[in-house]
């Protein structure tokens, strides 16, 4: 699956990438929400999943989440929020806005894998 990883930290993106690629996924990166949306304009069909940080400059993860969810072309895209903001109200807001899952930083590789498996399983048509 082609996964778009959105985080302003290059290291944070690499942490995700270095877990996802060995799982067989292909990863492209964006460093803020606006950049992510630009990529999705072109590659909405190919991208299967977006991993979104919350606190980012230019355009934050929540705004990005809302923008993706309001775009018909992106209906199929799974969204996993990956953020240090881990209070319940943040999680609830993200899920209400259409996120498929929420992973709080810090996380281990196993937790990320498990979370990915969760949202992929939930998204599979029965």
């Amino acid at each position: 699956m082609l996964i778009l990883v959105v985080d302003d930290s290059m290291v944070a993106r690499n942490i995700l990438k270095n877990v996802l690629e060995p799982m067989g996924h292909e990863v492209i990166e964006a460093s803020n929400g606006r950049e992510a949306l630009k990529i999705l304009e072109k590659l909405a069909k190919e991208v299967g999943c977006v991993l979104l940080d919350w606190n980012m400059p230019v355009m934050n993860g929540f705004e990005t989440l809302q923008a993706i969810r309001s775009d018909k072309d992106c209906g199929h895209i799974l969204i996993l929020m990956v953020s240090t903001e881990s209070e319940d109200e943040f999680i609830e807001r993200a899920i209400a806005a259409g996120a498929n899952g929420y992973l709080a930083k810090p996380f281990s590789a196993e937790e990320l894998k498990a979370k990915m498996a969760d949202i992929l399983k939930a998204a599979k048509p029965r």
């Binding site: 993106r13 292909e26 990863v27 492209i28 990166e29 990529i39 072109k42």
Partner: peptide
């Protein structure tokens, strides 16, 4: 394609 290009650039 663009997708491949972005992958290299990142």
């Amino acid at each position: 394609d663009m997708r491949g290009a972005l992958s290299v650039l990142s």
